[in-house]
Nucleic acid binder design. Sequence first.
DNA 1: TTCGATTTGTTCGTATGTATT
DNA 2: TAATACATACGAACAAATCGA
Lengths: 287, 287
Amino acid sequence: MSIDSPTRATSSRTGAASTRAAPAAGVSPRHADGASAVPLYRELQRRLTRALSEGTWPPGAALPSESKLAQQHGVSIGTVRKAIDELVAGKILVRQQGRGTFVAAHTADRLLFHFFHVVPRSDGTSRAPAAAREMPRPMLRSFRRASAGAAVSRELGIERDAPILRIDNLLLLGGRAVIVDEISISAPLFPDLDRVRFEGRPGTIYGLYQADYGINVVRSSERLSAVACPAPIAKLLGLRAGQPVLRIRRIAYTYADRAVESRVSWVDTREHEYLSDLWKSDPDHER
Amino acid sequence: MSIDSPTRATSSRTGAASTRAAPAAGVSPRHADGASAVPLYRELQRRLTRALSEGTWPPGAALPSESKLAQQHGVSIGTVRKAIDELVAGKILVRQQGRGTFVAAHTADRLLFHFFHVVPRSDGTSRAPAAAREMPRPMLRSFRRASAGAAVSRELGIERDAPILRIDNLLLLGGRAVIVDEISISAPLFPDLDRVRFEGRPGTIYGLYQADYGINVVRSSERLSAVACPAPIAKLLGLRAGQPVLRIRRIAYTYADRAVESRVSWVDTREHEYLSDLWKSDPDHER
DNA sequence: TTCGATTTGTTCGTATGTATT
DNA sequence: TAATACATACGAACAAATCGA
């Protein structure tokens, strides 16, 4: 414990200098003439992202330690840290003091706080500070093969009529049907994925993408509108056709901003809301 | 005024020596016994935020240079940079190489990219990459004094029935009425604000808060739901009562997470959408 | 339980590059 | 051109958390 810590003898002064010398195969796009001059940490960041997208370190795995990365790429630890900083901010990597740096994995928590934005309505009476979020319970309505229409082909960057998997899910919150999800993914990206395997997944859908197909969803963009509820949807949600329903069109992306899933969600907002708390705190919400 | 006294002569490093004794005015919540031990950069961050909220540097103004801040607070430049890093990430400060670090001011750009999320629908045909955003044109519908109801008083942290200003705005996009805004703000916070002054503002509403009252909105949280459009709103938006409309309840915050505005927006999403692109790129989109 | 090795977190300092004025 | 200010990069030392022997 040490009551206090004198130590730190004067000593050192260092001052860089000396070496520099051998970049040793490392990162080094030092400005040659007048064009590029990309910072070292950006180049390293690019390398890390590429390695990530190539599955060098699977989700949940530890990266080499900062000092190892520094050695391997011929840069200082500070530069490694700076390269990693932004990936951590983007929830792509996770640092843990004393343990290491890990590839972010899709846990229930991550789903809830990063990709799932429907929360119980906090209108009048509620004084709950954070409105304890609840994990949605999925009920598979349909799993089938289809071909990409105009919208999906454009959103996923695949050919028109290309083979896709089309999955319809009903999500229950507090025992009530609140959301209908219509998921479209490129079939070739998910070989051998069938209804049984899909339903048998141990965790979340993004966890399945990640664990079984090495596809790590790291970002999503969503476009919302209020529309009249179509009859089939209304039936599932227990409201009348034509009543207002919140429609969400989501595109989910993996590392290099590559779109991997197109999803249309229909949300019954009579007792729930879509929360767009553009990154407040998010203080890791430790246990 | 004045965050602290300069002092802490440059000289030696690491304080730490023997007698804890004099922390000498600088940042230095070094672990006293077993509780706190807040990092220096956090403490400095807290000081900067407080100075910001006290109006030490008005929006648009430059902070002292990093080296000055380092001297004044008795820490190294690296620590100052780290303290500022998060404020920059949070759009509270803006760094410009060669110029300085500035308090983020409410420009049209900032409004558009940070607080205004309604964009033209990008359904079928559109192949525009970024759907050029458009500045909404406001038309004041009503400006009056009122008293806080249950919801507003709770959201703004003021007494029930406390005096508020209630402003109703109609927003035009592409010449069409698309949004109705119902704004509630605490009257004592905005002395002498009247209809003439409000309508005569040169820029955005948040720009008015900032320039005339030193209140800098830095964050907002929004809760969305699809509801049946009330008749009065429908009339303004040119749709029929009962048709689906997107309702947004927004709370806008200034520095210390203090709520300063409660706003309910009604959005006609027949030709527009709410874009929730949870922080993608945002590459400063220079000039 | 203690201890030591490992790994990230914090802080310091320096040197140099680049943009602005 | 010179000064100023932020940006990048390096290196060092110590703190704190973790984990296995």
